[in-house]
Amino acid sequence: MSEQRFSDWLREQCEPGWTAVVTHPFATAITTGEAADDDMRRYLEQDFQFVDSFTALLGAAVASADSFEARVPYGRFLGQVATTEEKTYFHRALEALGGRTDAPLEPVTASFRQLMDQARVSQDYPLIVAVLCVAEWTYLGWASRAAEPLPERFVHREWIELHEGPEFRAWVGFLRGELDRLGAALDGEGRRRVLETFGQAVELERRFFDMALG
């Protein structure tokens, strides 16, 4: 029997929270195009507040990774976040929904940004990967549940498309692979610290979706 992947072990340790995120009623409503405008606006206003902290966390991953081969995917994705369709999506979607890019932080948004900033400042590569992996893997989890045809309205359809597809799956696969590789070298205390951070991120993802429903 093959040894269990560290990333799978982390996910299993975070049940039922993990499943609560990827099957959350709000996430499901996005996949079906039924997310209410007010909920979608509130959600995207808050999600936009992560862009700076998330970008800084990617930069910390570049700096703290233990090999050139590991640094390259972070640098590539960092460029995509800063310059490609995700950034333009926020502005187009918030304009369509009557939202704003400078919305006051909800408590859960502040808590999630604090977790990202703590991981960044720590320069502890496994903890940085843990936060990034939860953020991306949970989104692939709910977005991959969307059935064809995708919703017609771009605020739903494009958000799904940004978190599904071969490139995004490869990115999540890289993050999981890094966790698996790093986990093999961690002692019991190191694994406990990664699990604690991973679990905090999962719980914040669940609370963030709860917030969207008001």
Results as ranks from 00 to 15, higher is better:
residue 205 E to Q: 11
residue 159 W to Y: 14
residue 145 R to D: 00
residue 162 L to N: 00
residue 33 G to V: 12
residue 178 E to C: 01
residue 104 P to H: 11
residue 137 W to Y: 10
residue 132 L to C: 02
residue 136 E to V: 04
residue 188 G to C: 00
residue 92 R to P: 08
residue 13 Q to N: 13
residue 156 H to W: 01
residue 167 E to F: 11
residue 212 A to D: 03
residue 54 F to T: 07
residue 54 F to V: 09
residue 164 E to M: 13
residue 55 T to L: 08
residue 23 T to S: 13
residue 150 L to K: 02
residue 60 A to T: 05
residue 199 G to D: 06
residue 155 V to C: 05
residue 214 G to K: 05
residue 55 T to H: 08
residue 23 T to Y: 10
residue 44 L to I: 04
residue 13 Q to M: 13
residue 81 V to T: 12
residue 73 P to M: 03
residue 84 T to Y: 14
residue 58 L to D: 04
residue 157 R to G: 00
residue 213 L to I: 14
residue 23 T to K: 11
residue 5 R to H: 13
residue 184 A to E: 07
residue 108 V to T: 06
residue 212 A to G: 15
residue 46 Q to P: 09
residue 83 T to V: 11
residue 1 M to R: 13
residue 83 T to K: 12
residue 107 P to L: 03
residue 36 A to F: 10
residue 161 E to F: 09
residue 153 R to M: 06
residue 69 E to T: 10
residue 188 G to D: 11
residue 174 F to T: 07
residue 87 K to H: 08
residue 109 T to L: 07
residue 124 D to A: 08
residue 124 D to H: 14
residue 183 G to P: 05
residue 195 L to E: 14
residue 20 A to N: 12
residue 174 F to Y: 09
residue 142 W to C: 03
residue 45 E to R: 14
residue 190 G to R: 03
residue 53 S to Y: 07
residue 139 Y to D: 00
residue 211 M to Y: 12
residue 40 M to W: 07
residue 186 L to G: 01
residue 46 Q to H: 13
residue 179 L to D: 01
residue 87 K to T: 02
residue 213 L to T: 15
residue 181 R to Q: 04
residue 129 V to P: 03
residue 121 V to S: 15
residue 63 A to D: 00
residue 85 E to C: 08
residue 168 F to Q: 14
residue 120 R to N: 02
residue 98 G to R: 07
residue 176 R to E: 15
residue 40 M to D: 06
residue 154 F to Q: 04
residue 73 P to R: 12
residue 122 S to M: 01
residue 92 R to Y: 01
residue 191 R to Y: 08
residue 148 E to Q: 08
residue 113 R to A: 00
residue 133 C to F: 10
residue 24 H to M: 12
residue 192 R to K: 09
residue 36 A to M: 12
residue 77 F to E: 07
residue 203 E to W: 04
residue 86 E to Y: 05
residue 19 T to W: 13
residue 189 E to T: 10
residue 73 P to W: 03
residue 28 T to N: 12
residue 207 R to V: 11
residue 75 G to P: 06
residue 181 R to V: 01
residue 144 S to C: 03
residue 18 W to T: 10
residue 32 T to W: 06
residue 49 Q to H: 14
residue 69 E to D: 07
residue 103 A to K: 00
residue 19 T to E: 15
residue 66 D to G: 14
residue 59 G to S: 11
residue 186 L to T: 04
residue 204 L to W: 06
residue 18 W to V: 14
residue 191 R to L: 07
residue 149 P to K: 05
residue 165 G to E: 06
residue 80 Q to M: 13
residue 54 F to E: 06
residue 17 G to C: 13
residue 105 L to E: 15
residue 130 A to T: 05
residue 153 R to H: 09
residue 123 Q to V: 02
residue 62 V to T: 02
residue 141 G to H: 04
residue 173 G to A: 04
residue 105 L to M: 14
residue 194 V to A: 02
residue 136 E to S: 12
residue 106 E to N: 12
residue 23 T to G: 11
residue 83 T to D: 13
residue 128 I to A: 01
residue 175 L to P: 01
residue 167 E to V: 12
residue 15 E to C: 12
residue 204 L to Y: 08
residue 152 E to M: 08
